[in-house]
Design a protein around this nucleic acid. Structure first.
Lengths: 182, 182, 182, 182
DNA sequence: ACCCTCGGGACTACCCGTTCTT
DNA sequence: AAGAACGGGTAGTCCCGAGGGT
């Protein structure tokens, strides 16, 4: 149910996704939503964002173990994201970006969930960089730049229905990180 | 009217923005909208996106004239965007991103408008880089990276209600561009 | 609710009858309607037509039991219809004719409901005639003629706000049937 | 313009026919309607009904000259009506019936136009019968019955998308009239 | 005690027939 | 003669509680 709603929110955003659509996708009857989520749609979205964010962060941590350095890990993560983009016909970009943009200003609950999600990703990236020898301050800066680049690439790729921005940004990040840390 | 709707779409996205809200903001009666925009909300949004994109592109071109090099121009543009972000209490980020994410998959009209808008920005940035001595290919790559970074920074800054991502990305871009082209 | 809408559809037709008018007449809020009639106005009208048709057919069958022959039964039915016409100030003619004319071409659902309703009436009339000794073929023909005459009489009487066409057609049908079957 | 609107009113009725649809069909700009028809849609419909009624009455008179007796003339007229029904894919039945049912109760103007139209047809039929030797009173009665039968047949045929009711009623009327007047 | 059918309005985008103003 | 403006109206769908059924 959270999974189903997370997918829909990712593809359509908060306001474009109706509760009935979620119920249908989750094969759940309409009435029981407010039993499990007394906060209604808002709470549901917030929890879906949190869960989706955790999954991405886990992917980041897994890539960190699989790759020898930050450049490699970032490359892996971007390849996965690119794959999700194409396999969903460019409907599945960042799991939080759409909701963050179209709901986080009006719902503190959702806003907080998105903020925490982004922070957890940035922290994971920063940890990667520190492992490569970056200083605390440099890691903070660079992780923000890396995260922003990826988010922007996802936005551009989704809008253009073309993976080119993902590839270009991926290569740029890999080469930049490699140059700085080896 | 286009201005009013562009502002609302920028802040809330496509689906969260009601026609009545637009009418109210534009001091226009309900009935007149479908005379000027027979295509309804979709056409209105598409034209609003196009206009907003043109304005940003004009800002880019103006910055290109005001600054001696690409690094300077990008710095100016990001400062302006940061200013808009704070002066709107973090409701006004990229004028197209929210709509691009929550509507461009379901409306080809809006999708095309956003695609053209992003392309016009990327082209303007690429032109800047070529003026600094970049080759065609390098300019294409780098302009995508720059645009993606800015978009991601806007997303993060808006979500966090904090200009830090803007400043960090701005400084990173300026230093990167300066290093490569001087 | 079906009753209320049937009355309104009978008096005003499909397009002239607003959902809000139906809600008001049925003392039901709009949200409930789409729970019971997911197909909206179209489904509501189709079911209202079916119910109204059944009621008339029941009246036909009741008249068949009350009267010794077809002529008598038709006479009774037309008297009842004439009574409804006057008691409703000529707003209530045939419960299906108006909707059949102004909606059945654009809605297959409504069209089918009306078609079935008319058929059930014709069948009931044909059964009457066969009871009087008519052959199958003759009953089919004559029942169509009888039904058409009644429908036309209702149309003329309603338009003229005058029961004369009803009386004239009634007397004609009674005398014709009497002459042929006794 | 009157022709275009008459066709649309015939096929769809009064309320289902939009002014813009009429304007489009008549290649006329929307604003100038109220110059020619200050009474708006109501007046337009009333005049369209009058014109359409006149045309049918002219057809009736022409058939009266072409055929030797009433039975022949009615046969001709019904054949023409049946042809219009099929050639319009059962959208064009009686030019007034739909409007008479869905608008004449709420508009005295339209009601009067329809009443006059029906009366002119009945008068033409009565004249036919008198020519065949019927008395005044019998002609009045029978003309009502004939008109009602035709109207009902048109209704049934249109609803069923089948010319059978037209043929059956036609044959019945021809045989009845022949039997009575020769 | 948990589930969920059922019911409730406010709101949506859209379009209507009409009337200004030019 | 007509382009533009007007606001009330359309059907439809939204997210959400409250009461009946298991």
């Amino acid at each position: 149910m959270l999974d189903a709603s997370a997918d829909l929110f990712r593809a359509q955003g908060y306001h474009a996704t109706g509760l009935s659509q979620i119920m249908e996708a989750g094969r759940a009857p309409k009435g029981s939503l407010y039993f499990h989520f007394p906060g209604g749609k808002e709470q549901l979205a917030a929890e879906a964002m949190t869960e989706a964010a955790d999954r991405v962060r886990d992917g980041l941590l897994a890539a960190a173990e699989a790759a020898p350095d930050a450049a490699g890990a970032i490359g892996i993560v971007m390849d996965v994201l690119t794959g999700e983009l194409t396999s969903s016909e460019f409907r599945g970009g960042c799991p939080m970006a759409t909701v963050a943009l179209d709901a986080s200003t009006e719902s503190e609950l959702i806003g907080t969930a998105c903020r925490r999600g982004f922070d957890s990703w940035r922290d994971a990236i920063a940890t990667l960089l520190i492992r490569d020898g970056a200083g605390r301050e440099r890691a903070d800066e660079l992780s923000t730049v890396v995260l922003a680049s990826i988010e922007g690439a996802l936005l551009l790729a989704r809008t253009h229905r073309d993976t080119a921005p993902m590839r270009v940004v991926r290569d740029h990040l890999v080469s930049t990180l490699t140059k700085e840390f080896s």
